[in-house]
Structure formats: C-alpha cells, structure tokens
C-alpha cells in the first residue's frame, strides 16, 4: 500500500456519527495530485459528510486525515483553506441580500489597516473572476437574490477558484442547472485539471461526472465499496455497477478484478 505522503489527500479509517446514525464507517479516501475524482453514491451515502470533514466543518469521531503528508485528527474551516482545500457546498452558502463581490469574499475579506475593507480591490477582483468563468454582463454589485440558480452556483464556484486552491470539492454542482450551465461547470473542472490542480466531483449524475473524472470512488451507506480507473470501464459499466450497489450493496462479480481496492 502506498504511503500517505504520496497523496494530496488521504484519510484513514474516518468514522462520523450523528447520534445513532453512522454516516461514515471507516473511510479510506484518496485524492492524487492533479486528479479529478468522481465521488458517487446514493442519497445518504455520506458524500457530503466526507466533503465537510475535509473542509473542516465536521469533526470526525475517529480516524486521521493526511493533507500533503501532514497528519490531522481534525481540521477547521480556516485550516482547511490554508491547506488549499475549497468546498463548494451542496447547500446555498450565499448571503442573498448582499452583492456578488461581498459573497465571493465572504469570510475572507481583503482588509487594510485596522480591518477596514478594501472594497474597490474586492470589487475589481470579482469582476475579473466573473469574466473568467463566463458570467460576463453581470455587475459584481448585483445582489445575489436577483440571480438565477445557475448563476448562484457560478458565484459559489468563483468563490472557490479565486484562492488558487489545490483541491476543489464540488458537492452536487450541477443540480438545478440548465444544460449550458452544466457545460460551463464541466469546463471549469477541466480547466482545474489543466492547471495542475485536483478536484473531487460529487454527484448522482454519472453522465456529468464521467467525461471529466480520472477515477471513481463509490460510496454506499458510509462505506467505500469500490474504486475504478476511468480507463478500465465505460459509462454503461459504471451505470450497471451503481444500480447493483444501490440494490445489493455490492458490485457485480465481473468487475471485481478492476476494482482498485482489490488489485492494489
């Protein structure tokens, strides 16, 4: 088995309980440098819980987290960001009554002496970022409540990219989006990969994640049941596997030999 320090992110035996519910039952999750991981699984599998532990929002009950070889029992949102991990939440994490530029810098305002805001700087940086991601024609002064669902998602993604994170975790980023907006998100993931960064793409929709992912991790009821290289299987294979996992909790026999958990 490979050393934890070879991975950008490596978790060892993560357990997370919510009262009686065990959301994660010993997760060994890995992300390589410059890799796009598709994290798939049914509702309630624990995908968001894992993402939130990596972003420092939840504290795991057991287990360890290695980021670039550095070992942690738990992270805080600040620590995770310092380490270069950005999470785009499944939930809306926007202050709807406030302009786009304030939302982009929410919690990480650029400040001058005594903590006063550098408003012009943040506004200009926001305009530039909106342009880059293809949200031209929107002023950064627009309150977020006036945006459509897709544009709101765009603002959340812009917020994650601006800080040049090493790992961007996208939790259901394509839900509620129109076809062209989905396209934009997928291009953004490709752009990350091109720039040498990593991405965890969480979704139900394998048609969205298949084209951009390098590897798939399948989560079921708090356990990782399988990992596959994209090169080893077609989208139809992936679809079969997920149906089987949802029904029986196991992957079909014939795919076991390409399951990375066993060939490793």
């Amino acid at each position: 088995m490979a050393e934890a320090s070879e991975y950008l992110v490596y978790t060892k035996n993560l357990v997370k309980r919510f009262g009686d519910v065990v959301a994660l039952k010993g997760i060994n999750f890995k992300v390589n440098y410059n890799e796009v991981v598709g994290l798939v699984g049914d509702n309630g599998a624990g995908k968001s819980t894992l993402a939130k532990i990596l972003a420092g929002i939840y504290v795991p009950d057991e287990g360890e987290i290695y980021i670039k070889g550095q070992r942690f029992r738990r992270l805080t949102p600040q620590k995770a960001r310092e380490l270069g991990i950005e999470l785009v939440h499944q939930e809306r994490t926007l202050a709807e009554d406030h302009p786009i530029w304030r939302n982009i810098f929410m919690g990480r305002e650029i400040t001058g002496p005594l903590g006063f805001l550098r408003i012009r700087e943040m506004r200009m940086a926001s305009e530039k970022l909106l342009n880059e991601i293809g949200l031209r024609a929107i002023s950064a002064d627009t309150p977020v409540k006036f945006l459509s669902g897709g544009y709101k998602q765009g603002v959340q993604i812009v917020r994650a990219v601006q800080f040049e994170a090493d790992l961007v975790i996208l939790d259901e980023p394509t839900i509620q989006l129109s076809i062209s907006e989905v396209h934009r998100v997928l291009n953004y993931v490709r752009e990350l990969k091109k720039r040498g960064r990593s991405c965890v793409f969480i979704t139900h929709n394998i048609y969205h994640v298949y084209p951009v992912a390098d590897r798939f991790t399948i989560l079921d009821r708090g356990r990782i049941v399988a990992e596959f290289r994209k090169a080893d299987l077609s989208i139809e294979d992936l679809s079969h596997i997920l149906v089987s996992v949802a029904r029986t909790g196991r992957i079909p026999e014939k795919y076991e030999k390409i399951n990375l958990l066993y060939t490793e």
Binding site: A55, G56, I57, P77, Q78, R81, R92, M106
Partner: peptide
C-alpha cells in the same frame, strides 16, 4: 449557517 461554513 453559510457564514459558519465559511469560517466566520
């Protein structure tokens, strides 16, 4: 909730 998730 969002503010908390973003570290405030």
């Amino acid at each position: 909730l969002a503010a908390q998730m973003l570290g405030i």
